[in-house]
Design a protein around this nucleic acid. Structure first.
Length: 282
DNA sequence: CACTCTACCTGTGCGC
DNA sequence: TGCGCACAGGTAGAGT
């Protein structure tokens, strides 16, 4: 499922790729399933999109942000905000490409292109807003650039299992289930560890691991996991590798539930203790 | 306020 | 072969 690196890859593809989405004008918006829209009706959405031009593309956490300039110069600026959730995909395609079985929205563009949103599980959502804060204000700092002092002070103040906290988008935006498991493995931290029991060394390792894992995955254009997300080249060490050999110690990767989420870790490399694990080296 | 739990969805893979 | 079922999980919103 798309997390920060996959969303960042999509931003770069649509913005810098050939063809680019930047500068394209929406000729017609076709909503194939109304449920994909959040907070506005089909008609309002169509009216807002049709005639508008894509001006810029960015993201915060896992949210894609498309800045749109309406045809009418007096009209208010609008932003198209897309969340892919688990199975959502966006494609910029030639207009001759047929809709798929799971196409939820098609934007017909000038230049012989279409922007198509496909989502088999119907979890993904699209919003049209005048101000990005309507959607993004509840999010924490973007995970790729989260500050260490903020990270450390939040962990110390909270008394919560570290994994659900890391997945809390109001704390840090962009980390999902896959990269959380990868970051804990690298930092040698058990996902059930209480956040306020981590020492400064642990927190430094975790902070570094999150940013390193995400940066590597961005460089690889996303993850490559059999049957889950195969577009990129980033190979996971623990996610979905239940019972496989740990690549560091040869121990067996375990799967448990943490906060209702499937969680993969190496019980040897990531021991659970009440004390900070700062004495573990290597 | 802080945290936890459930609903939302459907393709996949398994056991029988 | 085909049926039923558990499972996957990000987020909103309800519950504790």
């Amino acid at each position: 499922m798309p997390e920060l690196p996959e969303v960042e890859t999509l931003v770069r593809t649509l913005r810098d790729g050939l063809p680019t989405l930047i500068g394209r004008v929406v000729k017609q918006a076709d909503i194939h399933w109304s449920g994909v829209l959040s907070g506005c009706s089909d008609d309002i959405c169509k009216a807002g999109l049709e005639g508008s031009k894509f001006v810029s593309i960015s993201r915060h956490g896992k949210y894609l942000v498309f800045e749109m300039r309406p045809q009418d110069p007096d009209a208010e600026q609008i932003f198209l905000i897309v969340h892919l959730r688990m199975t959502g995909r966006l494609y910029l395609l030639p207009e001759t490409t047929a809709c798929g079985r799971h196409t939820r929205l098609t934007l017909q563009l000038d230049g012989g292109l279409v922007l198509r949103f496909d989502d088999p599980r119907k979890f993904g959502r699209i919003r049209l807003v005048k101000n990005t804060a309507e959607v993004l204000s509840g999010l924490g700092q973007d995970a790729l650039s989260v500050g260490f002092d903020y990270f450390r002070s939040t962990l110390s103040k909270r008394n919560r299992q570290i994994k659900p906290l890391l997945l809390d988008q109001s704390f840090i935006a962009g980390v999902g289930n896959i990269y959380a498991d990868e970051a804990f493995f690298r930092a040698r931290i058990h996902p059930l560890t209480s956040s306020d029991s981590l020492g400064k060394e642990d927190i430094m390792r975790l902070h570094h691991a999150i940013i390193a894992v995400l940066n590597e995955a961005v460089a690889a254009k996303g993850a490559n996991i059999d049957g889950v997300f195969e577009e990129g080249g980033f190979i996971v060490a623990v996610y979905g590798r239940t019972a496989a050999a740990c690549q560091v110690c040869g121990g067996q990767i375990q799967k448990i539930k943490v906060g209702q989420r499937g969680t993969h870790f190496c019980p040897v490399c990531q021991p659970l203790s009440d004390r900070p694990t700062r004495n573990i080296t290597g």
